[in-house]
Design a binder for these strands. Sequence first.
DNA 1: ACAAAATTTTAGATTAGTCTAAAATTATTT
DNA 2: AAATAATTTTAGACTAATCTAAAATTTTGT
Lengths: 221, 221
Amino acid sequence: MYSFTEENYIKAIFKLQEKSNNAVNTNSIAELMETKPASVTDMVKKLSEKKLLIYEKYKGVELTESGRIMAIEMVRKHRLWETFLHNKLNFSWDEVHDIAEQLEHIKSSKLIDSLDEYLGFPQHDPHGDPIPAKNGSIKRIELFKISEFSIGDFGIISGVVNHTSLFLQHLEKNQLVLGNEIEVVSRSEFDLSLRVKIEGKAPIMVSNEVARNVLLKKIVK
Amino acid sequence: MYSFTEENYIKAIFKLQEKSNNAVNTNSIAELMETKPASVTDMVKKLSEKKLLIYEKYKGVELTESGRIMAIEMVRKHRLWETFLHNKLNFSWDEVHDIAEQLEHIKSSKLIDSLDEYLGFPQHDPHGDPIPAKNGSIKRIELFKISEFSIGDFGIISGVVNHTSLFLQHLEKNQLVLGNEIEVVSRSEFDLSLRVKIEGKAPIMVSNEVARNVLLKKIVK
DNA sequence: ACAAAATTTTAGATTAGTCTAAAATTATTT
DNA sequence: AAATAATTTTAGACTAATCTAAAATTTTGT
Ligand SMILES: [Mn+2]
Ligand SMILES: [Mn+2]
Ligand SMILES: [Mn+2]
Ligand SMILES: [Mn+2]
């Protein structure tokens, strides 16, 4: 049985591994875990003894197959709990993450599989992130930032890059919520802000900062 | 914020206080917590500094008002989670306790109140135990052990004394489940076993051991 | 290539929770 | 009212996870 701390390290290393492809370095783990590099070194030594990752002094770490399986299980639990909170208990998408951070550590595979079934085997969590299946498979679909869209392109809001409450609340206020269809109408050369039209509503202005943090599924009309 | 360990101590002390009325002694806490008396002494000192209980050397402990409030919150969480597992995820009554032991430590009052509402403000958990309300009030009703019943008495199974999986599974196999109405038909002088009739079913034999661990609400016919 | 900077590791301390063994106190028996 | 037994506390040690400060190693810049 692994401790909460060990589970959090594995999850953090997995997240870092996802975006970088190279070995994950000590400092980046420390930053994500909000801890000190010295503590990270201690922990990766321990996780390496437990065969969850490969650690080479001064060279960073890489998850083993069992480390990866464990990380995906954590992600599955986290996202299923977020979905439960959102779909069943009516929590808004900016409220679910912190509680899921706690719930993801509950040890019971029967519980998580029952929850999955109870929720109707959801494919995505309240932020649009894919929920790994029981067998570990993750269905990824290609998404694009609004900022990458051309004038006249249509898309459906399907994910976010930034997951902070502040950002999610901002999106909600501006109708930029999951599932809404939008069209990019124009782009300002000055600040790269965009005018976008949300189906059926009056066009709104979207800053470049926002446009770089909202993900769309492209649709052809 | 309190640690899981601190929360478990408070819950244990509350449970012991419920049945004894006197101050709770070190050894009984150690036994219930499956730890050593020396560890208990250390912990009660700490909890006493945090004003959750009154500790007097060699005299045992007693929860303060805030300790009692915290204990009741823990009980509320535990029983609501058990109810969720049973009512929504179809866990049987012998499977819910261990998982609730983990879930009761999730810190979010919004979560627990939402869960309460989602479950329809249940009054009892899957074992018949009362679920404390948000304000801490607990509705207790008078229950009697089957063994205390006289021949010809009627009652509805409304609780259990023993909460072990083994016992609960045994009850389930013998139709002795919550809500069933039973009548005590006869008592053997030899081993104090009883013949009881479960409404609509053939009479069964109930050992004294079982009869002392099943609680009934008396009904007058 | 080599000095300076950045990163990483080690050494030694700290805190929470636990343990064993010994000492202190309280309760029970004679 | 002692003596004995049971309970409780103290002292000192251990593990997990963390920290700071110093040492080691790697990377970067000239
Ligand atoms: Mn999340
Ligand atoms: Mn999410
Ligand atoms: Mn229980
Ligand atoms: Mn219960």
